[in-house]
């Protein structure tokens, strides 16, 4: 049917390279954010240093017997609420940051965005 229709022929000719292109080269795969967990245990962030991709979610879980928090340093640009034993808090990571527990200031951690 298309052969008899000059307009249809031109459309086929135009469409062909696109079909070939789309079948031969794939677009970059869209990154699917993942979730990582940092355990707060024995008065430490474990792991203390975590490498993630931008947009990944990090969950901090307090497994200790005392309350903690998770606070960006040095400017406190983000912070969890106080996390009682057993509580958790999550955040989508946008950039590399250092953080600490503002209750126990010697507890420190680091997020590295690849």
């Amino acid at each position: 049917m298309n052969i008899r229709n000059p307009r249809g022929n031109s459309l086929l000719i135009l469409a062909f390279p696109l079909i070939v292109l789309s079948s031969c080269s794939s677009a970059p795969e869209k990154y699917i954010p993942k979730t990582d967990t940092v355990m707060i245990s024995q008065m430490k962030f474990q792991p203390a240093e975590l490498t993630v991709h931008k947009g990944d979610t990090v969950v901090w879980v307090n497994k200790d017997m005392v309350a903690h928090d998770v606070t960006q340093v040095p400017s406190s640009t983000w912070s969890s609420k106080s996390l009682a034993p057993g509580q958790s808090w999550k955040m989508s990571v946008e950039e590399s940051d250092d953080y600490f527990c503002s209750v126990h200031v010697v507890m420190v951690g680091k997020l590295i965005v690849q």
Binding site: Q42, M43, K44, D64, M65, V66, V105, V106
Partner: peptide, 10 residues
């Protein structure tokens, strides 16, 4: 013990 040691460090 880890809590006490963190307190000491602090």
């Amino acid at each position: 013990v880890p809590t006490l040691k963190t307190h000491l460090e602090h």
